[in-house]
Computed example of a mutant assay.
Amino acid sequence: MPYFDDINPIALSLGPIAIHWYGLMYVLGGLFGWWLGKRRLAEGRLPATYEQYADLIFYAMIGVIVGGRLGYMLFYGFEQIRADPFALLRVWEGGMSFHGGLLGVLAAVAYWSRKRGIRFFDTVDFVAPLVPIGLGLGRLGNFIGGELWGRHTDLPWGVIFPRALDHLGKSHEELVALYRAGQLNHEARHPSQLYELLLEGVVLFVVLWLFSAKPRRRYAVSGLFALLYGLFRFSVEFVREPDVQLGYLALGWVTMGQILSLPLIVVGIVLLVASRRQPLPAAPVPGAPAQQ
């Protein structure tokens, strides 16, 4: 029998304040990224103090939130903005875009790097291996929240998402009763959030972390990140339900996620090729950077 995704999306309630698992995943992703980066900073991988590094992580988190929200509304909800511009500010209603968040992070990195006098891609190469853990946790938050589900499947690991059954007009109790009677088995869907957790989170992190364990030519780590994420996201989109407000954009199967991932694949290849013309970097000097 398929699994019924009946997890409470609210992790903690403090009176009128509800803390959702999805929001906690952003916090955990930021903390993990900060901790991993701190380890690399102590190895002399970035010419910055701990205080400057903390600023970088803070700017990056702001870039994720602002860029993610702007990207979602521009890529997936532009008509909603036209009808109600204030919808852009209602972040509690959900809606974040990885591609928009990526642009936000790159803008934050560019600002920080310019202030520090560090080459942009040296910072991006440092940050790239810190990102997948946050991506994976975000996809786990999507699964807990029962959103961004996959297409229908009869595979044994299919999942029934109650939010995908709103068209039935049933209460939660009625859906549970139908599930227990085996009458919702045909509504099982690919847990595409967990596929992305595995690929964009676990696999991407392991590959990038191990690849960047040794000094690499400039652009190489960034290029590998862009190429692998683009390929993983493009592939999972084949089993992920397209956004209802957009549907398929071409050929009866092309989604917005695939269109936005194609430039990443191209950029990744270009950066990897360009990295081959860069000199080998000097070995980093271990030890915490001097405080200022």
Rank of each mutant, 00 (worst) to 15 (best):
L175W: 00
L178S: 10
L12E: 11
P191G: 04
T153H: 09
A87L: 12
L251I: 09
P156N: 07
P242D: 11
Y111V: 15
L231C: 14
V91T: 13
F98K: 03
F121S: 00
F143H: 02
P162E: 06
L155V: 13
M96W: 07
A282M: 09
N142L: 09
G44C: 04
L168M: 15
K115Y: 04
G134K: 00
R114S: 13
A220F: 11
Q278A: 11
G136Q: 00
G146N: 07
W253N: 08
I19Q: 06
L262M: 13
F126M: 02
L140A: 08
R119A: 08
V285H: 10
A87T: 14
V285P: 02
G158C: 11
L249C: 10
L148T: 03
Y50F: 15
L280D: 12
L194I: 14
R151G: 09
Y72G: 02
D166H: 13
G33L: 04
R277W: 14
V244R: 15
I10F: 10
L198H: 02
I265L: 06
H20Q: 14
P85E: 14
A48H: 01
L24P: 02
M73C: 08
A220K: 02
I17Q: 09
F32E: 07
I65F: 09
I57G: 00
S275M: 10
G37C: 04
A274R: 13
W92Q: 13
G182R: 06
R90S: 11
H172N: 13
Q245A: 15
Q245N: 15
H20V: 08
G100D: 04
V266D: 04
R69F: 12
D84I: 12
W253C: 11
G67P: 01
L135M: 15
L175H: 03
G101K: 02
A87V: 12
W34V: 15
F234C: 02
A213I: 09
D154K: 10
Y26R: 03
L260A: 10
R45F: 08
G169T: 12
